[in-house]
């Protein structure tokens, strides 16, 4: 694998100065990211955290106040770097007077693709995003979800090595989101780098290899999913009661949560002391233990924890 990262930012900072008498706003502050080729990186944060501004700085839609952004080792301000990049904007807006086919053709021309290549890829991409048969339809008739899918198609017209997706899951129905997750998995298996921003944490957790949490323009946590989703104190135990042992009564007394399904109890055990009690029941032959697993934070919990820690 190439050692040059697909994305690298060094103390990247963007301060907006709206007017003479208005207070400057720091949208991104001293952001350092390094994303190797082939990685799926999820960039999560609340609305206004600085996700879209970071993407703008990566694509030279805005100029950094300080620091710099590099794509494949080259300054992101150089238009040449974008030849290897595909981009889906947040809330994709395209020319309403164009048809889906015309939009993809236009995108292909801007990459200097030949007519045959444009035509072949357009057909393939429209099919892969589920818009087959809509090639001649004007975009003014497209729904939000269809525009999102088309946006993804135009982002892939140049078969990019790096795909930057700004809130790609917004506006999609559950099937659309599942399709998109599949497309992103496909991109990863082809060795492409994917950088996406999202506030839909469940999907981000499913897709990303690594997550960066941005809050008020600062990266407050960044790491692999395993590192971020640290272990919690509680345990999930699956067990069977032996010889009519009333485990539900015990759970009620101990205030443990329990679910019963086909003679199988799933018990939420709050701490290690309670877990020792469960092992005692097992050693006394009152229950048969099937599995014991320590719970992990969900990405949402990890995100809120990091934000709370940062605020503190």
């Amino acid at each position: 694998m190439n050692s040059t990262p697909a994305i690298r930012t060094e103390a990247l900072t963007k301060i907006y100065r709206p007017g003479l008498f208005e207070k400057p706003t720091t949208a991104v502050s001293n952001l350092d990211i390094e994303i190797p080729e082939g990685e799926v990186f999820g960039f999560i944060g609340l609305n206004g955290a600085g996700k879209t501004t970071t993407i703008k700085l990566l694509l030279d839609h805005a100029r950094p106040t300080n620091g710099r952004a590099l794509l494949f080792g080259e300054d992101a301000r150089n238009p040449r770097t974008r030849a290897r990049v595909g981009y889906l904007p947040d809330l994709p807006h395209f020319h309403q007077f164009l048809s889906a086919g015309e939009l993809l053709d236009y995108a292909g021309k801007l990459f200097g693709l030949s007519y045959n290549v444009r035509r072949e890829r357009s057909e393939k991409l429209l099919k892969s995003v589920g818009l087959e048969g809509h090639e001649r339809e004007r975009l003014r008739n497209f729904s939000r979800g269809m525009l999102q899918r088309l946006g993804l198609a135009q982002a892939l017209i140049n078969e990019p090595a790096l795909v930057i997706l700004d809130e790609p899951l917004g506006g999609l129905d559950p099937i659309g989101r599942a399709d998109l997750r599949e497309i992103i998995s496909g991109l990863k298996s082809e060795g492409r780098t994917v950088f996406f921003s999202s506030h839909i944490l469940d999907d981000a957790q499913r897709i990303a290899d690594r997550i960066g949490i941005i809050h008020q323009g600062r990266m407050i946590a960044c790491g692999k999913m395993d590192e971020l989703l640290t272990k919690r104190q509680d345990w999930e135990v699956e067990l069977e009661a032996v010889d009519g042992f009333d485990i539900l009564k015990i759970c009620r007394e101990m205030e443990w949560q329990a679910n019963l399904k086909e003679n199988l109890f799933t018990v939420s055990v709050p701490d290690e002391e309670a877990l020792r009690q469960v092992y005692t029941f097992a050693s006394e032959g009152k229950i048969r233990l099937l599995s014991v697993e320590q719970r992990r934070l969900s990405l949402e919990e990890a995100f809120l924890k990091e934000v709370d820690q940062w605020r503190a």
Partner: peptide, 8 residues
């Protein structure tokens, strides 16, 4: 935005 994200 999608236009200027291309090498133009």
């Amino acid at each position: 935005l999608p236009i200027l994200a291309k090498p133009i």
